[in-house]
Computed example of a mutant assay.
Amino acid sequence: MKDGETVLVENTDYTVTAPSDPVQDSGNHAYTITGMGNYAGSKEVMFTITPYLADQFGAVYVYEDQNGKTALLEGTSVDPVDIPSVINKTVNHVTSNRVFTPGKASTVMLPFNYECSGEEGGTFYKFVDVKKENNEWVATMQETGNDANNEGTLIANTPYLFMPTATEMSFPNINGSVTLSTEGGGNCETADPGSHWTFQGTYWFKEWNYTAEELGRAYGFAGVAKDGINVGDFVRVDNGAKIRPMRAYLLWNDMPNAANARALTRGTAATEEELPQSITVRLVGSNGEVTSIGTLDSETGEMTFDSEAWYTLDGVRLSGKPTKKGLYINNGKKIVIK
């Protein structure tokens, strides 16, 4: 402490009151400096102790402090995530700094199993299928809580669609600890049995270019309407599209997926021209009702809704605002026309 260039003497010119909490713990700590003798008044001085970086697995950081080990999912990183199961990395908490926009869905893939409590800052949807309905291709995603054999459970290394209600995704329902691993689980994809479609997760930064094997067969969310593509559709990724680790995209395979594939006849292999240019995304709630219809941005992985578009509950796009009484979907919400 100084008065100009004069160094003051503790317990003669001032006293120091230490914080009541243990000063070895991470967090913010406040000291109070109070004048005495020829000096009056007080001043609070704050300093911060940060957690110790114990491990790093690409875009997953593991910090340690008095509360145990916390895994941070770094949402802006392009570093690949690789956590072999032999490491047996157990943490007590998981946080994410990825920023979400409420009502604007994104793809996610997590390197741990988790039982949802409804306090994660949004709803997770699993991939069901892609089918042609009324000459329109429709991808259906179903709320995880509707699976009687796996209610509300997220499986490690399996891609999901996340519809946020908050700006952050959190995991408050970790009971003691959770194990991180990028092996096993859904093996980074969810297949539509017997069809050609998979919902493909990635732990790597991906960029599609003209030499990429998946170019023309991979689909991401379209964030803007252009060239006949509606906001709210899965669209074929173009040259230069990018996706960060712990995201997912839709992929067409030339051969049907293994399960039940023998029940189908492959026939002539589909050419690129036969694949749809856009695919409508339909979100189904735990009660089996359609809750939202929208699109993926192939560069950001976020889903948006066209405020001008109107849909029936089975996903059929209308030419304009309906005049017939009933329940419709507009801008990602159910609207009653009376």
Score class of each variant (00 low, 15 high):
Arg247Phe: 10
Phe162Cys: 03
Lys324Glu: 15
Ile243Glu: 02
Met36Trp: 00
Lys132Phe: 04
Gln56Gly: 08
Asp297Asn: 15
Tyr125Thr: 02
Val128Gly: 04
Ala270Thr: 09
Gly27Ser: 07
Arg98Thr: 12
Ala40Asp: 13
Thr32Phe: 06
Tyr14Cys: 10
Ser177Pro: 04
Asn230Ser: 12
Met163Ala: 13
Gln200Tyr: 04
Asp192Lys: 05
Pro159Ser: 04
Tyr203Phe: 14
Asn287Pro: 07
Ile335Asn: 08
Asn150Gly: 06
Met141Tyr: 15
Asn97Ile: 06
Asp82Arg: 13
Ser117Phe: 12
Met303Asp: 00
Glu207His: 10
Val336Trp: 06
Met141Trp: 15
Gly185Cys: 11
Ala259Leu: 13
Phe234Lys: 03
Leu154Ala: 03
Pro245Met: 12
Tyr39Thr: 09
Tyr31Lys: 07
Val81Glu: 05
Ile279Asn: 08
Cys188Asn: 13
Trp252Ile: 08
Asn230Glu: 14
Ser292Glu: 14
Trp310Met: 05
Lys242Trp: 04
Gly185Phe: 01
Asn157Val: 12
Leu251Phe: 10
Asn175Arg: 13
Ser298Tyr: 11
Gly194Phe: 01
Thr140Ile: 05
Ile293Asp: 00
Pro276Ala: 02
Gly228Ile: 03
Tyr31His: 11
Val91Trp: 04
Asp306Thr: 00
Gly27Ala: 08
Lys325Ile: 02
Glu136Gly: 01
Tyr311Gly: 01
Lys89Cys: 08
Ser77Ile: 07
Asp147Ala: 12
Phe124Ile: 00
Ala166Ser: 14
Pro164Trp: 00
Ile83Arg: 08
Thr211Lys: 13
Glu151Tyr: 03
Ala263Glu: 14
Leu215Phe: 08
Asn175Leu: 09
Ser117His: 10
Val231Leu: 03
Asp297Ser: 09
Leu264Met: 14
Gly228His: 02
Asn146Met: 13
Asn173Gly: 01
Thr312Leu: 06
Thr165Ile: 13
Asn230Ala: 11
Ser106Gln: 04
Asn97Gln: 09
Asp55Thr: 04
Val94Trp: 03
Cys116Gln: 12
Pro164Gly: 06
Asn175His: 11
Tyr125Leu: 01
Gly4Thr: 10
Gly223Leu: 01
Val91Ile: 08
Pro19Gln: 03
Pro80Phe: 06
Glu74Leu: 12
